Amino acid sequence: MDQLLATPGLAWLILAAVLAITELLVPGIFLVFVAAGAAVTGVVTLIMPEFALLFQVAVFIVATSAAVGIGRRWYVDNPVPSADPLLNDRVARLIGEVVTVVEPIEAGKGKVRVGDGEWLACGPDAPAGARVRITGAVGTSLNVEPVIA
């Protein structure tokens, strides 16, 4: 233990390894960026061991921030393809669906049944029971148009 404290660079590298292993065991936490910051700090501290702990922490913060920035840029430039890209966009999934008017659309406002729920709807006047197609949404209100048979 005394050797570990006498060589702070080694302690930073061990911390980096522990964080990287934790990232592998518990996916989705994004500890890899923190591990990269700890690894850079470990290497810098091994090269220049005379730096105080405060400087080491500053290097760690800067290196981790840089790793996060680089990683974020990489994820933006290389998005992971999804089998269902609209998974978390319920309104986008509804566009094109044909639904039933449950409260008449009068003066541009009414309600439609979507699945087992009712949504506010905006569009041309339509009586209760009419079939309409969802074309978009504004806030929590669906934009609809009459289905032409």
Score class of each variant (00 low, 15 high):
74 W>S: 11
58 A>L: 15
32 V>W: 13
80 V>E: 05
97 E>K: 15
114 V>I: 14
36 A>W: 07
18 V>E: 01
77 D>S: 09
52 A>K: 12
129 G>T: 11
8 P>Q: 08
64 T>P: 05
35 A>S: 13
126 A>Q: 10
147 V>D: 08
40 V>M: 11
143 N>G: 02
149 A>K: 07
116 D>L: 08
69 G>P: 07
10 L>S: 00
121 A>L: 08
137 A>Q: 04
28 G>T: 11
139 G>D: 03
143 N>A: 12
90 R>Y: 05
132 V>I: 09
91 V>Y: 10
81 P>G: 03
61 I>C: 13
42 G>D: 05
134 I>R: 03
73 R>W: 15
105 I>H: 01
55 F>K: 04
10 L>P: 01
148 I>C: 01
22 T>G: 12
57 V>D: 00
48 M>E: 04
68 V>G: 02
36 A>K: 06
7 T>D: 01
62 V>D: 02
68 V>T: 02
144 V>E: 00
61 I>D: 01
52 A>P: 06
12 W>G: 12
47 I>S: 07
24 L>H: 03
145 E>R: 11
75 Y>P: 01
30 F>I: 14
145 E>Q: 11
94 L>Q: 05
86 L>C: 01
119 W>K: 13
82 S>Y: 03
56 Q>R: 15
26 V>C: 13
129 G>Y: 01
115 G>S: 07
39 A>I: 07
129 G>Q: 04
110 G>W: 08
2 D>E: 05
91 V>A: 14
100 T>D: 09
54 L>W: 06
48 M>G: 00
93 R>W: 03
57 V>K: 03
44 V>I: 13
109 K>E: 10
140 T>M: 04
5 L>S: 10
26 V>D: 02
138 V>L: 10
23 E>H: 11
57 V>S: 11
21 I>K: 00
59 V>G: 02
18 V>H: 06
59 V>C: 08
42 G>H: 07
17 A>S: 10
71 G>M: 05
47 I>Y: 12
13 L>P: 04
18 V>T: 09
112 V>H: 04
33 F>A: 02
19 L>V: 13
27 P>M: 12
124 P>W: 03
143 N>I: 09
119 W>D: 02
4 L>I: 15
46 L>S: 11
123 G>T: 11
105 I>G: 03
30 F>T: 15
120 L>S: 12
75 Y>W: 08
7 T>L: 06
53 L>V: 15
51 F>E: 04
143 N>W: 07
105 I>V: 14
83 A>S: 10
75 Y>A: 10
143 N>M: 14
4 L>M: 14
142 L>R: 11
53 L>I: 14
66 A>V: 15
83 A>I: 07
36 A>I: 13
63 A>Y: 02
128 A>Y: 12
30 F>L: 13
37 G>E: 13
9 G>S: 11
95 I>Y: 01
112 V>R: 11
92 A>F: 03
2 D>R: 14
90 R>G: 06
119 W>T: 00
123 G>M: 07
140 T>K: 00
45 T>W: 05
32 V>D: 03
103 E>I: 15
44 V>Y: 00
7 T>H: 12
28 G>W: 04
69 G>C: 06
136 G>N: 10
38 A>K: 13
68 V>R: 03
76 V>M: 08
117 G>V: 15
118 E>T: 09
101 V>M: 05
24 L>A: 15
99 V>M: 04
33 F>G: 03
137 A>F: 09
62 V>K: 00
